[in-house]
Amino acid sequence: MKSPSSSIRDILAANLKRERARRGLSLSKLSQLSKIGKATLSQLESATGNPTIETVFSLSRALEVPISDLMDAQYPSAVTVVRAAETEVLSGEGVDLRALNRIESGGVIMEVYDQQVRAGCEQHSLGHAGTEHTVVQSGTLVAEVDGRRVELGPGDYIAFDGWLPHSYAAPEGTVRSVLVLHYRSARSEHQEPPNPPH
């Protein structure tokens, strides 16, 4: 089995170079757009850096691409089985994400993640491409979206425009949830918030 950290580094390096070239961006311009230092970007492209959730989401926002375009979380098969022990973890200041699947259908891209918010931690995001959906599986999740704070328990669901600043916190213990990000494949500059469930 490959080391998770080296595999994530290698995949991100190749995809980041491809997406930067596709958009015709210099390292300096991407650094300006993503607010990530030029030296850090150079390390990421040479597979010597240590990517975090914050880094990958900032790159997704700056390049206006789905997270999976950078992390290559595709499992093409008639039957998809993803084993927890064999799935790489991308960590941030308060969250661990495991990419489970990428689904493309009808002009929409959907990414499915196993998300764990660590006990006593908080994960902040300035925003990123896509619409974000979270279903809490266990624990109490405190979500804040564009200044609005919501407490969610097992079975509760929240959806919002990923471009909005948001955060997740687990003040009472570890939270397990399923995170789904969906995008229009046209990669429009801004995506509308989801319709509320009926």
Rank of each mutant, 00 (worst) to 15 (best):
S77F: 00
S58P: 03
L179A: 12
S7L: 14
S5T: 14
G24K: 08
L27Y: 08
Q115P: 00
S7R: 14
K29Y: 02
S6C: 02
H133R: 06
Y75C: 00
P171T: 06
G106M: 01
V136Q: 04
E192S: 14
L97R: 02
R176D: 13
S3V: 13
W163P: 00
E45H: 03
P165F: 10
R61V: 09
A143N: 12
V136T: 10
G127E: 07
L100H: 04
P4C: 03
V150W: 15
K29M: 10
N15Q: 14
S138G: 02
G139M: 01
I11R: 05
T134W: 03
R176W: 07
S28G: 06
P171S: 06
L90Y: 01
F160S: 03
L59C: 07
Y75A: 10
S5N: 11
A13F: 04
S105A: 15
N50V: 04
V108D: 00
V145N: 07
S7I: 09
G106D: 06
P196A: 05
K29V: 15
R83P: 05
V82A: 07
A47N: 07
A169M: 03
G24Q: 07
L97D: 07
G155Y: 06
I158Y: 12
R23E: 12
A186R: 07
T134F: 11
Q32L: 11
P193C: 04
A62G: 05
V65K: 09
E88C: 04
R187F: 02
S46T: 15
T134Y: 08
V178H: 08
P197I: 13
Q116M: 01
A169Y: 10
A13W: 04
G139C: 01
L33Q: 11
E111A: 05
Q191P: 01
V135D: 00
Y75R: 15
D10A: 15
L12K: 02
V175P: 05
Q74C: 09
H133S: 08
H128T: 12
L63Q: 06
A119M: 00
E144F: 05
K35I: 02
S68K: 05
R83L: 09
K17I: 15
H198G: 14
E88P: 08
T52E: 03
Q74E: 15
K35H: 14
R9A: 14
